[in-house]
Design a protein around this nucleic acid. Structure first.
Length: 594
RNA sequence: GGCCCCAUCGUCUAGUCAGGUCAGGACGCCAGGUUUUCAUCCUGGAAACCGGGGUUCGAAUCCCCGUGGGGUCACCA
């Protein structure tokens, strides 16, 4: 099995989304499992939509996930930090050890043209001269008759010598493949045999008017030239496969093993796509029932004109740039659904956890642990060892963020605290660099500064880790420790519940405990908790009687990390200051109570 | 609409290929418990074989029909 070669072949028209990431993961896992090669090829034959930035983004996404490719475009990971918590560092990925590159299709045009010439020569392909507009009109007409349009081979009515002459003479044209008049049966590792009748497939285009090959042509030529043995791709490609098989036969190529992966959907069952960010944001803005000036403010936040914004709002299909969407979401204080790998990195998911979860969408190891539970949690090494095509599922699956979140939280919470700290630091460093959190930037900056100090960082990590599911929300658990003593906002409900009620009241307890604080040494979590517990026991009080008033005084709310950690993070001086301020502000007798 | 694919708890799934265990697990949900709040953690619970026909002693599992969902119908990939 050493000769297995898989490939992931994205088109660089946007960020890598989770569906693509799962395909890449499976391609990678199969190659690793079989001791074969995993190669990466960039399908940039759409001149209008391909961008260099997208290519880099995809390479970085894959590297972040920990999917190293043996052949393909090079990416030097020693020179850059890839989004802070990436799985691979200090290696150069890609290269061309077998000499089968280049791995950008736009640089391989001569190969496609050679194959196309051969097909034309053998009359298995032919030039066609209809304009896109003509074809569109025919399509519309067919639609009006409630028929499915298929190319009518009008170009074949032109005598062969003439159409070749017109082509050589430079007349604008496309080249079409003469689809054989027979049903084609595709063997698929997931779906079994799929039969497609001849009348379902028309003479598809091999080379576009601009001289670039279509996906079909480039893909078939390259898979052959690069020795690809296994093609794993989304099920949306299933109908393309008979075309590819027909082309392979015409050119005398091998047919690789195919495995079509089920689609990944949104929780509502619709296909997952970038458009969902637009959808989420549109829905939110509409729900605000925003007036004209409000819309103006939103448009400004997104860096777009009000006209653009209104048009976008009115058109279901309209999309705004990722940057504009992100800015508006921050401004409105909402979180857009994570769709791209980059989104998950930014939210603070761990790459190996994402891979773990993604692997479970459409694949299952079919193993039980000692307690008879399904094996669900595993790392990359497990996939290297156990991945197999036989256990791929057929059913489209829905992307369940709750489960991913649970997996991520569990992983984060089980890490050694120093490991958690360094991962948090790396993630935060990138977040700060990207100015992702402009709505609260100074606080993030402050956290960043404090996290850099080892002792302080560790204390913050100890407080945040047990409550953190993704790094994005970690800061909320230690927010109180980052604000100034006189900036604490006391929550009305908390004041009433734990400071005013009870006998003795919370305020009374605070007054008494205040002196205790001075004497605690060292001012560290265990000592603090020990002192307060002993103090409570002496008085026959439950721990909560003292803990909750202290929480309110220190954080303004009834929720915080462990009491010792909470006080220790603020420091002895800070604690005293906050208690004093709380006594002053919350005592009804002091007229500052409300 | 044509064609193709799919169908087990709310979600991801094990069990289906080689018919025979109260249909198992995970996330979520609900109820208790531990705990100084929250988060954890522990215990328990509700929750599914899409429907109808066959084949069979026996069907989640095999066959047919229906229904539902998805994909696809480009000079995008």
């Amino acid at each position: 099995m050493g000769d297995v070669i898989t490939r992931f072949a994205p088109s660089p028209t946007g960020d890598l989304h989770v569906g693509g990431a799962r395909t890449a993961l499976f391609c990678w896992a199969l190659a690793r499992r079989c001791g074969g090669r995993f190669l990466l090829r960039i399908e940039d034959t759409d001149q209008a939509r391909s961008t260099e930035g997208a290519t880099r983004g995809i390479l970085e996404s894959l590297a972040w996930l920990g999917l190293d490719w043996d052949e393909g475009p090079e990416l030097d990971l020693s020179k850059q930090t890839v989004w802070g918590t990436g799985a691979l560092t200090d290696v150069t990925l890609g290269g061309d050890p077998r000499g089968v590159g280049p791995f950008f299709q736009a640089r391989r045009l001569d190969r496609y043209n050679e194959a196309i010439e051969e097909l034309i020569e053998r009359d298995l392909a032919y030039p066609a001269f209809e304009s896109p507009e003509e074809l569109e009109a025919k399509r519309k007409a067919a639609q009006a008759r409630k028929e499915t349009y298929r190319y009518d081979r009008a170009a074949l009515a032109i005598p062969r010598a003439e159409r070749l002459a017109r082509m050589r003479g430079g007349e604008p044209h496309v080249v079409r493949f003469r689809m054989p008049d027979e049903a084609i049966v595709v063997r698929d590792e997931v779906l079994g045999e799929v039969r497609v009748e001849a009348d379902q497939l028309d003479d598809f285009v091999l080379r576009k008017r601009d001289g670039y090959p279509t996906y079909h042509m480039a893909c078939v030529v390259d898979d052959e030239g690069m020795g690809v043995t296994h093609v794993l791709r989304g099920q949306e490609h299933l109908i393309n496969t008979p075309r590819h098989v027909a082309l392979q036969r015409a050119l005398g190529y091998r047919t690789p093993v195919y495995a079509h992966l089920p689609i990944i959907c949104n929780p509502d069952g619709s296909k997952m796509s970038k458009r969902d960010k637009d959808k989420t944001l549109k829905g939110h803005i509409r729900s605000l029932g925003a007036g004209a000036d409000h819309l103006g403010a939103i448009a400004e936040a997104g860096g777009v004109s009000v006209e653009e914004l209104e048009h976008w709002l009115g058109d279901k299909r309209a999309q705004l740039s990722p940057e504009a969407l992100a800015k508006m979401a921050i401004d409105l204080g909402i979180v857009l659904p994570e769709i791209n790998v980059r989104d998950f990195a930014r939210s603070g998911y761990l790459p190996e956890v994402l891979c773990n979860y993604l692997a479970l969408l459409g694949w299952n190891p079919g193993l039980k642990d000692e307690e008879g539970r399904d094996v669900e949690r595993f790392g990359m090494d497990f996939l290297r060892e156990h991945f197999s095509l036989e256990r791929l599922g057929k059913k489209a699956s829905r992307f369940d963020r709750e489960k991913l979140l649970a997996f991520n939280g569990e992983t984060l919470q089980r890490m050694p605290v120093d490991h958690f700290l360094s991962a948090w630091r790396r993630w935060l460093g990138v977040a700060i660099e990207n100015r992702r959190f402009v709505h609260d930037f100074s606080l993030w900056r402050r956290l960043w500064e404090e996290l850099k100090e080892d002792a302080r960082g560790l204390a913050l990590a100890r407080a945040a880790q047990p409550r953190t599911k993704i790094f994005l929300d970690a800061i909320e658990h230690v927010r109180f420790a980052l604000v100034d003593d006189d900036a604490v906002v006391f929550d009305e409900k908390a004041i009433r519940k734990v400071l005013h009620k009870g006998e003795p009241s919370g305020l009374e307890i605070l007054r008494q405990v205040r002196d205790l604080i001075e004497g605690i040494d060292p001012f560290e979590p265990e000592a603090i908790e020990g002192a307060i517990r002993a103090w409570c026991e002496e008085r026959g009080l439950k721990m909560g009687k003292a803990a909750q008033p202290l929480r309110v005084a220190i954080t303004g709310t009834t929720v915080s990390p462990g009491l010792g950690e909470t006080l220790a993070l603020v420091g002895k001086k800070g604690v005293s200051a906050r208690i004093d301020r709380c006594l002053l502000a919350c005592d009804p007798g002091n007229n500052g109570g409300d």
